[in-house]
Design a protein around this nucleic acid. Structure first.
Lengths: 193, 193
DNA sequence: GACCGTTGCCAACACATGTTGGCAAACACT
DNA sequence: AGTGTTTGCCAACATGTGTTGGCAACGGTC
């Protein structure tokens, strides 16, 4: 702290900080947590590796900052109940088609316990909260949210990580048509016996 | 080659080889490709790290041997068409609930290109071939197989890798009830416009 | 213009990694 | 018994990693 009394004053190094964060997201998304080295990230950002340490403390700290992520789920109460699935798939596809943060998180979650923990938080908190806006049984709500997460993450995993050819080649709209009914049933379908 | 003229004669070191492979599968499944070190695997197998190199050439070679995997898909032509989804989910859950090889492959596929390639091979070849037993349009067949893979891998990813609480707590039979209709539609449903 | 915090770079440390070569004991075979 | 092969271990190398400390240049403040 210098002389700033409240929140954060714009610092002269903000540009550097942002460059590091951008490069970190790219590298984490492309290589995963362990293969993405601080040296490579620093090289991409065209600064010295020691700056990364000064501004983010450690590699874990850098990842924590780079993997900050908000699903930005729309208000599901203002959506026609019959179109919930469609709205959700479309939203997710659009959300991470233009933001590699989730891909970074997805890759890292496989090997980094902290990343997995964050993933759990995001989908357990944000998604469960959204699903909870309709339906009262908490166990059932959690199960619905989990199933939705399984299909959504499976979609992302096969399309962006493993890159299964049929999943890569299919257009987003076609994917929406196929997957929307699945989410719809997970969200509003009557539970099996 | 020593004096063996055909295939493979039982060697005295077979026990060691097997111990290495078992430890490797465990470590790769638990830690992923990069965090699983040859030293740790050798320690688990109670032998010297250099033996791993001698018997498997390199870390990549060891992984290739440890990640040998067969989905063992049943013959889908002898299954009532209406129960295809149910049979498939049950088979997959049973298949990898007792064999950590697929978990190892799944974890590694996120960061290791070779593992991702193998994953593509398994699901593009074995699964697509099974789906192709009914239906003629190759593009549609590939798409169906891809969608099935997305839900199946999403299930495995959320249950075994990220360990989302609702997906971990749910019993296999309950998962089957929820997911079977999804696969059923991906396999036999009429394609959207 | 002197002072002090900030920004940046360089060099280095401590450590873990995959990998290699050499050597001793155990074994197989004549 | 003698010889060649196999199995195993030890020590070491080369390299890449996250991380640290020190030092020069810059920027604003009195």
């Amino acid at each position: 702290m210098t002389s700033s009394t409240r929140s954060t004053q714009p610092r002269r190094s903000d540009a550097t900080r942002a460059a590091i964060l951008r490069a970190a997201r790219e590298r984490f998304a492309a290589d995963g947590y362990e293969r993405a080295t601080i040296r490579a990230i620093a090289a991409d950002a065209q600064i010295d590796p020691s700056m990364v340490m000064r501004y983010y403390g450690s590699k874990e700290g850098l990842f924590a900052a780079a993997a900050e992520f908000d699903l930005r789920l729309p208000d599901l109460t203002s959506v026609p109940p019959a179109r919930l699935g469609e709205v959700l798939v479309r939203h997710f596809l659009a959300r991470w088609e233009g933001d590699e943060t989730l891909v970074a998180l997805l890759r890292a979650a496989s090997t980094n316990p902290g990343a997995a923990e964050r993933m759990r938080g995001i989908f357990a908190d944000q998604l469960t909260a959204a699903v909870a806006t309709f339906g009262t049984d908490p166990t059932l709500t959690a199960r619905r949210a989990g199933l939705v997460a399984s299909q959504i993450l499976g979609l992302a995993f096969t399309r962006y990580i493993v890159r299964l050819p049929p999943m890569v080649d299919t257009t987003p709209e076609e994917l929406v048509s196929w997957v929307a009914p699945t989410l719809q049933r997970y969200l509003t379908g009557t539970p099996p016996s």
